[in-house]
Design a protein around this nucleic acid. Structure first.
Lengths: 205, 205
DNA sequence: AATTTAATTTTACAGTATGTCAAGTTAAAT
DNA sequence: ATTTAACTTGACATACTGTAAAATTAAATT
């Protein structure tokens, strides 16, 4: 009674503007996720509200990202990608080792200051969920490597107990959590950053 | 057709052994909650599994504690109560201000080391959920007060910029998060504690 | 020993969240 | 005009939280 659908004949298809639209949605979703995460926290952030706030369907979020955890990983990745790579290059291109250390501290305190609330949440999720924690840890490894290389270059030797100690201290002093705790007590982010640098100099140099 | 129940005549009732049993259950639940939280994290910890692991009904947990968040608050309270009060007294009873500082650092690094995983989770929950975060912050205020008093006594004066700076630094250096980051890099908790003390001495004394 | 009392269990329910599926719609690309 | 794929819609299964009321159990009282 009803007409049968024709058989599908494959034909080349270039999605130009459609990809663009799709990307806009990705951006909108991540932006909304960030806002939601910062204001209400992780428990308030539901796929439903996220969909509503970003003007998309819940299903679309699943199509674009996968699970809720994957949305957050994407958010974290974007953050690291936007800021991380180029800044790390700046650090490593310093000729003087001393200024490399300074640059290292500045790059991260700046990063922590600009994304304080978001990173607090993301690290919080990492702390409560071992699986997500592993994902975050993997993404933080670049900082670890950098800290190691800087201290080793500073010390000349590598592998000694003293060097190991310095690496651990530099790592901890430039961690987000330390900055976050410090900023709570200091009046401003700027002075917290200054304090970190001073402490690093005293402890490592 | 059926017999009517007699009217209830109130009569004094002392629940001696029953309270004891109830307390045993409270303990079992908190113990199970801790284990679950440490091993699987917050997202894995459900009221159902918690009930199963502690040999109680889900409803009983609700009766004894209230909501899931209240279970965790109870867990955190117990932790702080067990260790916190007496230890803080030890710190404050030091005659020498210098040894008061040392004692302060030791008390907390010791505490962090003994409850590392649990505190990491609890602070994680505080970081992702503003409401729970406020509850944790309120319970951490004792440490804040102590740090302030120690530095003020050490400096003689109170209110100066330099004193404020020192308070913030002492606060951050003795935070759990800093210890946690440091312990990751150091081989042992012991050496992490040593590092904290050394840094505090350098920065504050 | 019989009865009263309250803790605990059982059972049921409402509300909300996640994640998946299939069919329908829409708009860009051909 | 037709094909294509993103997107929406609506529905579903599952799981967790929190609450309520009746049934059960064991301690405390008489």
């Amino acid at each position: 009674m009803a007409k049968k659908k024709e058989a599908p004949c494959k034909r080349p298809y270039d999605l130009g503007k459609r990809l663009e639209l799709s990307d806009h949605k990705r951006v909108a979703i991540l932006r909304a996720a960030r806002a939601q995460l910062e204001s209400g926290g992780f428990l308030q952030l539901t796929m439903n509200t996220l969909a509503r706030k970003s003007g998309v369907t819940r299903q679309t979020i699943h199509n674009l990202f996968g699970t809720k955890a994957e949305v957050l990983e994407a958010l974290f990745d974007q953050l690291a990608l936007d800021a991380g790579l180029e800044r790390m290059r700046i650090v490593m291109q310093q000729t003087n080792t001393e200024s490399m250390l300074t640059s290292f501290v500045e790059v991260f305190t700046d990063f922590w200051a600009k994304n304080r609330l978001l990173i607090r949440r993301i690290h919080g999720i990492a702390a409560i969920d071992p699986e997500f924690g592993a994902a975050v840890e993997a993404r933080n490894r670049r900082r670890q490597m950098a800290a190691t290389r800087i201290v080793e270059r500073l010390d000349g030797a590598s592998g000694s107990e003293e060097t190991k100690r310095k690496i651990a201290v530099l790592w901890a002093l430039t961690s987000f959590e330390f900055f976050d705790a410090l900023a709570e007590g200091c009046g401003s982010m700027k002075s917290a950053a200054d304090q970190v640098l001073a402490l690093v100099r005293k402890a490592v140099a």
